[in-house]
Each structure stands twice: as C-alpha cells, then as structure tokens.
C-alpha cells in the first residue's frame, strides 16, 4: 500500500487532523481520556482505510466498494470522531458568540437529519453521481461533504458538548429509525433496478470479475442490509444504555409526580 501514491491529500489531511487534535490538547492544557484517545486513533485508522484501500477498489469500477466507502464515511467515521473528541476541545469555539446560534441550528435533530438526507439522496442522483465518478476534485469534495453531514447526523446521538445536547434515549432510537426512509429511498431502487443506473460503471472492466449489474445489486444490498444491520446494532446499544438508566434504583419521593421526574431524567441525559 502506497499511502502517498495517487492521493497525497489523504495522509496530509489526516496529519492535519492529528495536529489539530494535539494542538487543542496543548492549548487547553488537558488530556483526552484514554478511551477518547483510543476512539480517535480508530477513527484515523478508519479514514486511512476508507480513503486508500477502499478507494482503490472503488476506482476499479467496483460500485459495491464505493457504496461501502460511503457507508464508512457517513455511518462509521463520524461517530468514531465524535466519541474521540472531548467536549472541552469543541466547546470554546462552538459556543463562542458568533458560532453558537449556527451550531445550535445545525445540530438541531430535525435540521441535521434533513441536511444529511438531502446530501445523501442528492449525491446518489444519477447525474450527480456520474459527475463524481469522472471529476476527481468533485469526488473529494463530496466525500468531505459526506463526513461533514455525517457529523451533523450523529451529533444528536453522541454530542460531546452538553450545551448542544443529545436526544433522550428513546428519541435517539426513533431518530435513527427515521433514517431508514432516506436510506431505503436510495438503496432500494439501486438494488432492484434491472439496468445499470450509473453509466461510468459500464465503461470499463470490473474488479473481482463482477458484471456491472451484479456489482450494482451487491452495492445496493450493502447499503440497504448493511446499513439496516448496522443501525440495528446501534439500537441495541442505545436500548441498553436506556435500560441501565431507567433501572437505577431511584426511590420515589412521595410527592413527586411523573412529569417532574421526567425533567430530572432528561436533564441527566443532556449532561452525561
């Protein structure tokens, strides 16, 4: 694997990210927890893998690997980055006066969801997608956009900044559940299509000896089933966290009515 080969932007970008991370630690005079550092390292590894190994396969006209790459960029890397970034690293600038209202708007679950869905659906629209395959700069731009939109998407689940809070656990499940609509809207037509949708894939030989149409079905299935299974696993984690919290032995103060208790609880989620 020649990481500096065709795309020097990848190692440079990763190096810049690491530099920023370390610089922020130094500036704040704090260290991330061991766990956060680990998640960050995994995130960097995931980016490296996605943009080198997977990218080469995708460039070999393997649509399925290209879809896997998109899934990594939207569903795997952003949550890893959010897990790996301590809140104190982001809070100072995200909560600074000019940025805070924008951050608040963008990380609102409805807005974040709509932005992500719009980006994801538009990018798989045939004319856009085909241009992406032919224009390397546009391709890089879209991949960065995927990761940025993915950060927004996962913010209400994994926000490290309490002032831009997470959703309550059941709402998180519902939120990710809703994601099945745009994902299915993209994946299902690709999977069930009887013709090759994106012309670029018919213009050359495929890796692994796949035909263009088989490759497309495989890509659609990776996006449909892969995404569904992934979300199912995430649901499981969220449900467990919810059940742990609800099971905590909080004895009921005699006068407390349910609504008051709920406020207490939703604050606790926001602060955790």
């Amino acid at each position: 694997m020649d990481i500096f080969g065709e795309h020097p932007s990848i190692p440079i970008g990763i190096a810049i990210l690491i530099a920023i991370y370390l610089g922020a630690c130094r500036a704040a005079g704090r260290k991330p927890t061991r766990r956060q550092a680990m998640w960050f390292a995994i995130a960097m590894g995931a980016i490296l893998f996605t943009q080198t190994e997977l990218d080469e396969l995708a460039d070999a006209r393997l649509f399925s690997m290209h879809m896997l790459q998109h899934l990594m960029q939207t569903f795997v890397i952003p949550p890893l980055l959010l897990l790996g970034t301590p809140g104190w690293m982001l809070a100072p600038w995200m909560l600074s006066p000019p940025i805070k209202p924008i951050a608040r708007l963008l990380t609102n679950p409805v807005v974040a969801f709509l932005i992500f869905s719009a980006v994801f659906v538009t990018a798989h629209f045939p004319p856009v997608f085909d241009r992406m395959c032919r224009d390397e700069n546009f391709h890089i731009f879209l991949h960065l956009l995927f990761m940025a939109a993915g950060m927004l998407l996962w913010w209400p689940i994994l926000s490290p900044v309490p002032e831009l809070p997470r959703l309550s656990y059941p709402a998180q499940i519902l939120y990710l559940f809703l994601l099945m609509i745009p994902m299915t809207a993209v994946a299902a037509p690709i999977t069930l299509a009887t013709k090759v949708i994106y012309p670029w894939y018919t213009e050359g030989a495929h890796g692994w000896g796949l035909t263009a149409i088989d490759d497309q079905v495989l890509g659609g299935l990776i996006m449909w089933i892969g995404q569904g299974t992934y979300l199912m696993i995430v649901f499981t984690f969220i449900f467990y966290k919810w059940s742990q919290r609800e099971d905590r032995d909080v004895s009921v103060p005699p006068e407390a009515t349910a609504p008051e208790l709920r406020v207490l609880r939703s604050r606790r989620v926001a602060g955790s």
Partner: peptide
C-alpha cells in the same frame, strides 16, 4: 403508577 418506569 408513580415510579413504574418502562424498565420496571
């Protein structure tokens, strides 16, 4: 009843 959360 009061105190009966979903997980109870």
């Amino acid at each position: 009843a009061p105190g009966m959360t979903y997980m109870r």
